[in-house]
Simulated scan of single mutants.
Amino acid sequence: MSNSYTKAAFGLVVTAAEADLLRRVAAAIEMIGDADIGIDALEAHYATVGADFAALFPRTEFSPFDGLLDLFPDENYPMLDFDIHFGEPDAAGQVIVFLSGEQFGIETAANLIQRCARSALPFGFEWASDHDRLRAGEFGGGYVVITEAAIGYGSTGRMLDRALARSRAEGADGFVLAIRHAEHGLSFWNDTDGFDRLSRARVFSEAEAANFDVPIASAEPAEWLAMPAALLL
């Protein structure tokens, strides 16, 4: 018999109000995960959770805590797969919250932070996967980047594949369409405003570039340029 693990341990700084909200959310999740707790007890507890909780996690007619279910990858198993520890508020009213676990719920933690710890955003954390036997393919990890608008996930496996692809062929990170201007230099295509600065450029895959109808925007012909490797790698 052998075991696989997904591990993470990190802290983030939140406001005292956010820390209090996180405590109430964790307590509610513990309650809804207990099959022995009936609907009357859930209704009684919901009456104490506060208006901020109710606004973030609106109830349904079936259960007062159904609003919590979208925190979890599987709504049939609403549980926190990690421990949460809270520090004491400092003089500025900030609290360090520490999350850790050996079977860490990566998606649940990311959703929880995005919903309940807005003052900490943007925020990110790393995770590791390992095994208690030295088996090929059982080790790796990744990261999560959380903003108010989105949650992004990356893995070491994908990063490795991209790094290997760069060593084999130019354009592994995509292509941009550029034109050269004698006075202004290079401009790069985006689908909203046409040719503009690089930070707004559309990045094309090799297949997209091959099938794109290149616009005629100046006397100089447009050209495809390979994106350089990301600084992270």
Rank of each mutant, 00 (worst) to 15 (best):
A117L: 12
E75I: 14
R168F: 11
G141S: 02
R118I: 09
A120E: 06
A28Y: 05
E220I: 06
F65G: 03
N76K: 12
G33Q: 06
R115W: 05
A209T: 02
A163Y: 00
L12V: 08
G194K: 06
G33A: 05
S2M: 10
I96R: 14
K7Y: 08
F139G: 00
P89Q: 04
I216R: 12
F65H: 07
M1A: 13
V97Q: 01
P221A: 09
D90A: 06
G157C: 08
F86D: 04
R115H: 10
A210S: 14
R115Q: 12
V144K: 00
L225E: 07
G185T: 10
E43K: 15
P73R: 03
N111D: 00
P228N: 08
M227C: 15
R158V: 11
G152Q: 10
Q114L: 10
I151T: 08
P221M: 09
T15M: 02
E148F: 00
P64C: 05
P215E: 11
R115I: 04
L71Q: 04
A172L: 05
T147V: 01
A44E: 15
G140F: 01
P58A: 01
G67P: 13
M159I: 06
R115C: 06
L160H: 00
A136Q: 07
F72V: 06
E138K: 10
S218P: 01
L186V: 00
A54F: 03
V95K: 01
A109I: 01
I113A: 04
F123C: 04
E102R: 10
N111H: 15
T60P: 12
A110H: 06
D36K: 12
A222R: 09
E183N: 09
L68K: 02
F212W: 10
H131I: 03
A230K: 07
E75W: 11
V214T: 10
L121G: 08
D40E: 15
A230L: 13
I151C: 03
G137D: 08
L160C: 03
S199Y: 13
S129V: 15
R23E: 11
P73E: 05
W127Q: 13
N76V: 00
E75Y: 05
P215D: 14
R180G: 03
R133Q: 13
A110F: 01
L80K: 03
R200K: 15
Y143M: 00
N111P: 00
D196W: 13
